[in-house]
Design a protein around this nucleic acid. Structure first.
Lengths: 119, 119
DNA sequence: CAACTATATAACTAACCAGTGGAATAGTCA
DNA sequence: TGACTATTCCACTGGTTAGTTATATAGTTG
């Protein structure tokens, strides 16, 4: 990254992250990571409303994260940007680390309790 | 990633990304990537309002992305999660790719124009 | 203690966005 | 053409949050 990022570049970056900042969109992306799906399949697999899914698919497509392929009555979507998976994996790693730390902290608290109890 | 992510895990992931989905927060993080800074320095370097910066710093600290160190009258902040830089670099890469593609597309359009003009 | 500085908080406004239901569009099959 | 299905668009509601101004807290220095 350059030393000073102008506001418009920051806005571009923020926009990318914003696309990934919604659970429904992440669920959709997770679904598409398994392979190309049509809207009905995504609706079924994510358990979200159809209009809702359609709207999010449009946002993701407009942002260039997924691509659209029309086949007869169905519309198929697929991951277009391979970086998405990398980003999600990194975030999953940090969350796992967070959870590990939390477990350790609680275990330490319990240990101290036992020591204090004994003393 | 496991095949099916529960909604609470998706919400955790979305929350991480949401922290990075604001230009002001990105500007702050970019500033801290150069090293530890106190609030005044961050305000000066980002050009944002003091209350605004303070609020975002708190959000970032609460989310565990940065850490807080009080020294007398000043409060110093620093990056706590090294993954942030990786995420930002990845996103910068995708943006650069997007821009390259856009330039190529425009250049292609201009080329076609010249060909059509000649024909 | 009083004046001063750095940082944090409170209250408020405006904008944005997720979700929903219903109407509209487009493709398919009889 | 008419019934049917998959998908998209529209209008609305409620909740979230960014930014601002003014105020409060905490540490420092005289």
């Amino acid at each position: 990254m350059p030393p000073h990022l102008t506001d418009d570049v920051l806005e571009l970056m923020a926009g990318k992250f914003r696309m990934l900042s919604d659970p429904t969109r992440l669920a959709i992306l997770r679904c598409l990571m398994a392979g190309e799906r049509n809207v009905g399949q995504v609706v079924a697999e994510t358990g979200r409303g159809q209009a809702n899914v359609s709207k999010h698919l449009r946002m993701l497509a407009d942002a260039g994260l997924i691509r659209r392929r029309k086949a007869g009555l169905q519309v198929y979507y697929a991951i277009a940007d391979p970086l998405i998976e990398k980003l999600c994996h990194l975030v999953c790693d940090t969350i796992q680390a967070d959870l590990s730390r939390e477990v350790e902290r609680k275990q330490a608290m319990l240990s101290e309790w036992r020591i204090a109890d004994r003393g």
